[in-house]
């Protein structure tokens, strides 16, 4: 399922002195099956863009096409239900959305709202709690007794249980410890390998380099570039000018370049860099 933006603009608090531009004439397609990363400094419009993906916000002008559904400024707020099921959204600090008495109930909440029977919703809860790497015994505990990282997983399980076609993640690893972050990113990579469309907002350029196959760069409410991470990260100076960083490997390669190494394109990942260095240093093929 593709999500296509056609000349979408969004203004916050339109017609008041506090009006602010959220999106400015964005035309972009998020392809079904892709792992799309959205990067941009704070306030560049990433969150506004995200909220258009499941019609939490409607454009002030332009249209958003979500699968078969067209969202225009005049779309009614009713009957958006089917969209919300297709596009699952994990918000920043998603653990703050938990409310139920047990993990089981909380994870089953989404599917129940979309008309899944109590029995099937419960089965989904059990399955998803396992998928996010939580032990089975948390199912009947209160989500508020868990650690912050575990609560985040429960919230993500709650969205996965809706079995969305597109999974939207807004900085899902913010505030997690490095091990938790790695596990979380591995989980999303596995979901993507199983055919899940993923949209990830992140400030971690390493994650973009390691996982994404399409990158949107946002600045001042506009999508200023779209492309494969390989293309996006070639232009180091341009990224720095947009208050963005580079993957650690690329930074390292840039410093090597200053010391006389030559790269025809900047590597993004450690294996890629190792391979290039092995070739240049006259060694055998790096394994």
């Amino acid at each position: 399922m593709d999500i296509t933006f056609d000349h979408v603009s969004y203004t916050y608090q339109a017609n008041t002195p506090m009006a602010g531009v959220g999106l400015d004439d964005v035309s972009v397609t998020i392809h079904g099956g892709a792992y799309t990363a959205i990067i941009g400094h704070t306030g560049s419009g990433k969150s506004t863009l995200l909220q258009h993906l499941n019609a939490l916000l409607k454009p002030t002008s332009g249209t958003v096409r979500i699968g078969e559904r067209m969202i225009t400024p005049s779309t009614s707020n009713k009957n958006l239900h089917p969209l919300r099921k297709k596009v699952g959204m994990v918000f920043q600090f998603a653990e703050s959305q938990l409310f139920a008495a047990t993990v089981r109930e909380d994870v089953a909440f989404g599917p129940r709202n979309f008309g899944v029977s109590a029995e099937d919703a419960d089965a989904l809860a059990v399955q998803m709690v396992a998928r996010v790497g939580l032990p089975e015994d948390v199912l009947d505990r209160s989500p508020f007794d868990l650690s912050g990282g575990q609560m985040r997983r429960v919230a993500i399980a709650g969205v996965l249980a809706m079995q969305p076609e597109v999974l939207v993640l807004d900085e899902p690893t913010a505030g997690l410890d490095p091990a938790g972050r790695r596990e979380m990113m591995a989980l999303f990579a596995k979901l993507h390998a199983d055919g899940q469309t993923i949209v990830l907002v992140t400030h971690q350029m390493d994650d973009v380099a390691d996982f994404a196959d399409d990158v949107l760069v946002m600045d001042q409410g506009k999508v200023v570039r779209q492309g494969h991470p390989k293309e996006i990260f070639q232009d180091a100076q341009w990224l720095l000018d947009h208050q963005l960083g580079l993957p650690r490997t690329t930074q390292f390669a840039l410093r090597l370049q200053q010391k006389g190494f030559k790269f025809d394109h900047l590597p993004l990942t450690t294996p890629e860099l190792a391979q290039m260095l092995a070739e240049q240093l006259g060694g055998a093929r790096h394994e």
Binding site: Q51, N54, L56, K78, H81, R84, K85, V87, G88, M89, F91, A94, S96, Q97, F99, A100, F109, G110, N113, F114, G158, V159, M162
Partner: peptide, 27 residues
């Protein structure tokens, strides 16, 4: 934010009968 998160999980705030609306208060 919370309303958005629960809307994304299929809650319809402000629609349906009284009983249905009261139930949306908890989440």
């Amino acid at each position: 934010k919370t309303m958005n998160a629960q809307r994304a999980r299929g809650v319809d705030f402000g629609s349906g009968g009284l009983f249905k609306q009261v139930k949306t208060i908890v989440p």
